[in-house]
Design a binder for these strands. Sequence first.
RNA 1: GGGGGUAUAGCUCAGCUGGAUAGAGCAACGGCCUUCUAAGCCGUAGGUCGAGGGUUCGAGUCCUUCUGCCCCCGCCA
Length: 561
Amino acid sequence: MKEELSQLIQQALDTLVAEGQLPAATRPGITIDRTRDPSHGDLASNVALTLAKTAGKNPRELAGLICAALPSAGFVSKTEIAGPGFINFFLTSDSSQAVIGRVLAEGARYGCSNTGGGRKVQVEFVSANPTGPLHVGHGRGAAVGDSLCRLLTATGWDVSSEFYYNDAGAQIDNLALSVQARARGFTPDDPEWPDDGYRGNYISDVAGAYLAGEQIDAKDRHVAGAGDADNLQAIRELAVAYLRREQDLDLKAFAVHFDHYFLESSLYDSGAVEKAVAQLIARGHTYEHDGALWLRTTDFGDDKDRVMRKREGGYTYFVPDIAYHLNKWQRGFERVINEQGADHHSTITRVRAGLQALEIGIPEGWPDYVLHQMVTVIREGKEVKLSKRAGSYLTLRDLIEEVGCDATRYFLVARAPSSQLTFDIDLALSQSNDNPVYYIQYAHARVCSVLRKLAEHGWDWQQERGLAALDQLQEEHEKALLRRLDQYPEVVANAAAASEPHRVANYLRELAGEFHTCYNAHKVLTEDQALRDARLALCAAVRQVIANGLDLLGVSAPEAM
RNA sequence: GGGGGUAUAGCUCAGCUGGAUAGAGCAACGGCCUUCUAAGCCGUAGGUCGAGGGUUCGAGUCCUUCUGCCCCCGCCA
């Protein structure tokens, strides 16, 4: 509709140019916006304002000329010039009400589009080290990343979700040493405790399982505890399997699914790391200094060069990262989005620099990143410091068990990723009934309830009859809902384009609020059949859009509460 | 010192990529259940959009300077 309107305006401008009322060179980008205030109509254009200067006319006069030259359109009932020179368009009732037919016809597909055109995109998120259970920060990454996948799927992308599994490197050695120390009966406060060892209580659980010879079955590995506290390699294998299993359970409880798990160790096994290093050397972007091998990342926008191979021989973490992203590129992902915590921000420049230095035609800004800011957890008014090493720990699973999966996901996805998030446990616990997610779910359940109640009155509802009676919807509350429903596809498209799932959450809150208002003001199950049929159609459409939106957030839409 | 993020109601946060009178939820106060679920609705109160400058018809939104807070700047990941 915006498209058609903007074409009509363009025709009007052409007419004015032909008549000599406007200079010929004016070719503005015509923008049509939704109005915020219903008294301003449904759609508005600022074209007269943007054009006034070059036209040498005052905006209101110009708006009048444009309106006069505007071809008539079936879906516009009235145009008005308002404020400093806006042209407001009022839609006919028919065209406003038509959204209900679209929602009911498209069902779960309403709001979907095909901007992705079936192109491949990979979304990598969570990618937590297997050195402890997932915490709230990982939860935010999981909620945002998973919702992003759903948004991209809804906008026509061929999405592949991936978890990079960091099962090699120094932090795994540290994990093994920590478990070994526990197996030997030491505690973090003993002098024998390894420097920077992981102090959390879960390390004891791992050690206990190892000593007891427990069988650990994770998704991709099955290991039995060897029981020998001197066998560091066996400890390492059990510990990784144990924590992998824990993370599997965390993600399952959070209803987050990954298409692929990618093992860092596979990059070493396959020789991909060595190959990438050789390529970087061959391209002449490296040098030896102080016994280490350096990558000249300053050639690609970094503020200093970075060590690739340490003096003692091992690679720094960003080298396998480069090999990993090279692998993504080779798998054909022309678009990759990495969702990570903002504390990993500094890796972006390095990874991109490394990929440029390979000189194989990877675009400069590849891959994309979505960074979420830190999550602060508050309990009893005080900040809970989260530190794996210190052992002060609030796991994601604790939170899910206490607050519920739906509420936890909603809280973590309902804010802009770029905004710091305060998760108040007491609020989430003690006032769980006031969680905004229930407000939205309740709107969905209410519609379901009305439809159940219908039968008790001995009435029925048929979609065709409802659609035929839509002209009954004349209340302002109903019109507001129609406008809101019509907006949904744009919200989805914009949320996907901006990688900001929270926009869907905000929208749903608005929609649910307007529904509750309308529901309280106007009885759905009235004796007047035509009115009843029309309102039921509206309710059914609201229910559908809430269900669609909640699904994008990974939150359930219950039929009763 | 350098880079990134951020600053909007007492608190937690929105603000649709520059539009018309800045919004919601908690918290406070006052109303609405013999009627489709009160996990709801209606009303009152609450603001120098951190500060200064700039861009233009128009700025919470864009550019700049400053200030506060968060995160990075490792031969840790």
